[in-house]
């Protein structure tokens, strides 16, 4: 059995290193462009949010929660929760966390929804994309932080890169599922009237899949929030940064306060998204 020890090491790690180096060496203009766009996007978003006095913004968010969910409990949760965050002196970190989550989610949607549609309509694409999603979801979240640094450097852009990769799978998966779940008879009906594929998609499949797609977006937001917190390790600021600081200084008080603020943000986003998704299932046209 001596020969077993003589099998050369299969260079998986080397291949990945090589790929990342190759990419950062040759496509740095791409990563740089991406960095610049995203970075200025985040900066504008945070500046914009900070332009308002916190108490005014709390009222705006509360009104928005009411408008989107039409539920008094969600409105109260928003009002009290945000007030508490402000009261704990975590307002500014909360805003930058929120900005990171929003930007990551938007990017994840821009990439994820078309991929989900593609996978739903094309069997071959489905067979390629699904296993990749499995890998993406089972890979420990921390691993994504490592290539972010050579590609985008420390800071919010690297955080967004790893967050997008980590949070995108449910958006793809549930978009695909929602479209595939449209009853075959309805698809046949659309076909029997001579719809083009595009008409079928826009008039039937996407509207029917909307509740499922909304559930996917909700999951993406939740995953993005958890990843943005982890990404504090590579220099993303925000509530995660507060937790990270608390770990380094061994300050449970500060850690838990930031933790509670994260829970509040998660709950508000989740409740609002659920209501938005839930409303879609009602008898509203289109």
């Amino acid at each position: 059995m001596e020969w077993l020890n003589n099998i050369p090491r299969i260079p998986i790690g080397d291949a990945i290193d090589y790929a990342i180096t190759l990419f950062s060496d040759n496509f740095s203009f791409l990563t740089k462009a991406f960095s610049d766009v995203v970075e200025s996007g985040i900066a504008i978003l945070i500046e914009g949010l900070m332009f308002f006095p916190p108490l005014v913004l709390i009222l705006i968010f509360t009104a928005l929660a009411w408008f989107l969910s039409r539920k008094r409990s969600v409105m109260l949760l928003t009002l009290i929760g945000l007030f508490l965050i402000w009261n704990m002196n975590l307002w500014d970190p909360m805003l930058s966390t929120l900005a990171l989550v929003l930007v990551s989610t938007v990017i994840a949607m821009i990439i994820g929804l078309p991929l989900g549609i593609f996978a739903a309509l094309n069997q071959r694409a489905y067979r390629v994309i699904m296993p990749i999603l499995d890998v993406m979801q089972t890979m420990p979240a921390f691993v994504y932080l490592i290539p972010a640094i050579p590609l985008f450097g420390l800071g919010p852009v690297g955080a967004i890169f790893s967050t997008v990769i980590f949070s995108m799978p449910p958006a793809i998966r549930l978009t695909c599922l929602g479209i595939r779940q449209v009853p075959i008879e309805l698809v046949e009906a659309a076909d029997s009237f001579g719809s083009t594929r595009r008409q079928k998609l826009i008039k039937l499949q996407l509207p029917m899949a909307t509740p499922t797609i909304m559930a996917g977006i909700n999951q993406t937001i939740m995953l993005a929030l958890s990843m943005v917190v982890i990404a504090a390790m590579i220099g993303a600021k925000g509530l995660g940064g507060e937790v990270w600081k608390a770990i380094q200084r061994l300050e449970p008080s500060r850690g838990f306060e930031a933790g509670i603020a994260i829970v509040i943000v998660a709950m508000i986003l989740d409740r609002i998204m659920q209501r938005v998704g839930g409303k879609q299932t009602g008898a509203t046209s289109q």
Partner: peptide, 19 residues
Amino acid sequence: LRQKRFGMVFQHFALFPRR
């Protein structure tokens, strides 16, 4: 041909629920 010549009616109606 489907648009102009054939009208189809389905067993379980196959109406578009959101319209």
